[in-house]
């Protein structure tokens, strides 16, 4: 699921980063930053260097974001999809939200076993003349090796905590972490091999065509142009040679009760 409402997204983001929200209207958000967020968002490294060197208490800044870009407010900073500030926040999230180890929040009064799942959100990029991307969210049960697609949709329905709940204990994985990872990747690669890649054929054809045009232009006896020709030819390869890249957006281990674990597979 993509971001449905930018304002709510930002609110959750600053809350999750332990910032106080000073003002929250439908189109305006004022935030008291923490030291860490100030360092990251406000771009004043010298200030923080100085503060740390002298062992002082830093004074983190405030930020006001206007989620309606047409709002005329002198103090606020308009934020919209594509704006540098939002890109900066997305980049921070890339690092901040990368690795998890989470436990299902349950209230139990007897010993309860939790099943470990490795969950990976994976981006597959098809890069040629153009670029296309797809996201896969795959989970593998580290006890029995069962795998499911779009696991994120299921995880969204459950409450998670970074600490293991009382009376719960972790089952030890039978499939090691790295093997679990490999199984997911192999699944994706197998799928890729079974797909027709018209885009790649098209891109390859385009590459050949561009090279032909280049040849036509360098039909000259003078040897001085060989270096230039080579450079251009390489640039064409770099631009059009088809490539598939698999990268992990984020992921980690989710410990869940056996019944949740079973439901995952049944859904």
């Amino acid at each position: 699921m993509a971001i449905a409402n930018l304002h709510d997204f930002l609110f959750t983001f600053f809350k999750a980063n332990h910032c106080d929200i000073l003002e929250n209207r439908g189109d305006k958000l004022s935030i008291q930053l923490t030291d860490k967020m100030d360092e990251y968002l406000l771009n004043r490294p010298f200030y923080w260097q100085y503060v740390k060197k002298l062992g002082l208490q830093g004074e983190p800044g405030k930020i006001t974001l206007l989620t309606n870009p047409l709002l005329d407010d002198e103090e606020g900073e308009p934020i919209h999809f594509g704006s540098p500030r939002l890109q900066q926040i997305f980049r921070l999230l890339d690092e901040e939200g990368k690795f998890v180890r989470l436990y299902q929040m349950v209230q139990v009064d007897q010993q309860t076993a939790l099943v470990p799942w490795l969950v990976l959100n994976i981006k597959v990029s098809f890069i040629g003349k153009q670029k296309k991307e797809a996201i896969k969210s795959i989970g593998i049960n580290m006890i029995n090796g069962g795998m499911i697609n779009n696991i994120i949709d299921q995880l969204e329905k459950i409450q998670w905590d970074t600490k293991i709940p009382d009376f719960c204990y972790n089952l030890s994985p039978l499939i090691r972490l790295k093997s679990s990872y490999q199984r997911i990747i192999q699944l994706i690669e197998k799928e890729l091999q079974e797909t027709e890649h018209d885009w790649a054929i098209e891109s390859w054809r385009h590459m050949e065509e561009e090279k032909k045009l280049l040849d036509y232009f360098y039909q000259t006896d003078k040897k001085d142009y060989t270096a230039l020709y080579k450079k251009e030819s390489e640039a064409i390869e770099a631009l059009y040679r088809p490539q598939i890249a698999i990268s992990i957006i984020n992921g980690g281990i989710f410990h869940m009760t056996q019944s949740t674990s079973l439901n995952q597979l049944l859904d």
Partner: peptide
């Protein structure tokens, strides 16, 4: 490790930035 919120926000941002 990250919290669920940050993990989920990061996933949402990626979906949002996807060239589908």
């Amino acid at each position: 490790f990250s919290s669920w919120e940050l993990f989920h926000l990061s996933y949402q941002a990626s979906v949002n930035n996807l060239t589908t």
